[in-house]
Amino acid sequence: MAPMPQSAQAQGAPTVWQKMKMGAMMGTGVGLTIGFIFGSYSILRGGAGPRGVLSTLSQYMLSSAATFGFFLSIGSVIRNDTPAQWEAARLQMLPPIMHSRNQGLAIVKARWEQEKAKRSS
């Protein structure tokens, strides 16, 4: 198995600021696309208006990019706001999902013994 690159090991989890920037960039990209689609449809349907095609389309694109970017940046921080220590503690409290063959056999034998003890008493 090949070792991981040094930069990936040393970097760790992204900070809150990095998460917010990433959410804002994704939201801006989505907003620009949605603004282009709805702005183009609006221009084709009702005309460009007194300011012209480019100005009207850019207003649609920029306003939707700002809105989507703002809300996705907040959402990405809220979604990932749980501290890593809490997540690690929660995972430690869960029972293991998979057991080795020997552990599974021991669990089954213990359950059989409990059932035998219940039936005999």
Rank of each mutant, 00 (worst) to 15 (best):
M20Y: 12
M20G: 15
M20T: 15
M20C: 14
M20H: 08
M20V: 15
K21D: 04
K21V: 12
K21F: 12
K21M: 13
K21L: 14
M22C: 13
M22H: 12
M22L: 11
G23I: 03
G23K: 13
A24M: 14
A24K: 00
A24W: 06
A24F: 14
A24G: 15
A24S: 08
M25I: 13
M25A: 11
M25N: 09
M25S: 07
M25H: 03
M25C: 11
M25V: 13
M26D: 05
M26N: 07
M26R: 09
M26H: 05
G27F: 01
G27L: 01
G27A: 05
T28F: 08
T28V: 14
T28I: 09
T28H: 02
G29I: 12
G29Q: 07
G29V: 09
G29W: 02
V30H: 02
V30G: 02
V30W: 06
G31R: 07
L32V: 13
L32I: 11
L32K: 01
L32S: 03
L32Y: 08
T33R: 00
T33C: 07
T33G: 08
T33M: 07
T33L: 10
T33K: 01
T33Q: 02
I34K: 06
I34P: 00
I34C: 11
I34R: 06
I34Q: 13
G35W: 01
G35E: 06
G35T: 04
G35P: 12
G35N: 08
F36N: 05
F36P: 01
F36C: 10
F36L: 12
F36W: 12
F36I: 10
F36S: 07
F36H: 02
I37K: 01
I37R: 04
I37G: 14
I37Q: 03
F38A: 06
F38P: 00
G39I: 04
G39W: 02
G39S: 04
S40Y: 10
S40Q: 02
S40F: 11
S40G: 13
Y41A: 11
Y41I: 11
Y41S: 10
Y41N: 07
Y41T: 10
Y41W: 04
Y41F: 07
Y41C: 08
S42Y: 01
S42F: 04
S42G: 13
S42K: 08
I43M: 11
I43A: 05
I43T: 08
I43H: 00
L44Y: 09
L44N: 06
L44K: 11
L44H: 01
L44P: 00
L44M: 11
R45T: 13
R45A: 14
R45M: 12
R45N: 12
R45G: 09
G46W: 15
G47M: 09
G47V: 06
G47H: 10
G47D: 05
G47K: 03
G47T: 08
A48D: 13
A48W: 01
A48K: 09
A48M: 14
G49F: 09
G49Q: 06
G49A: 06
G49K: 03
G49S: 10
G49Y: 06
G49V: 15
G49N: 04
P50G: 05
P50L: 10
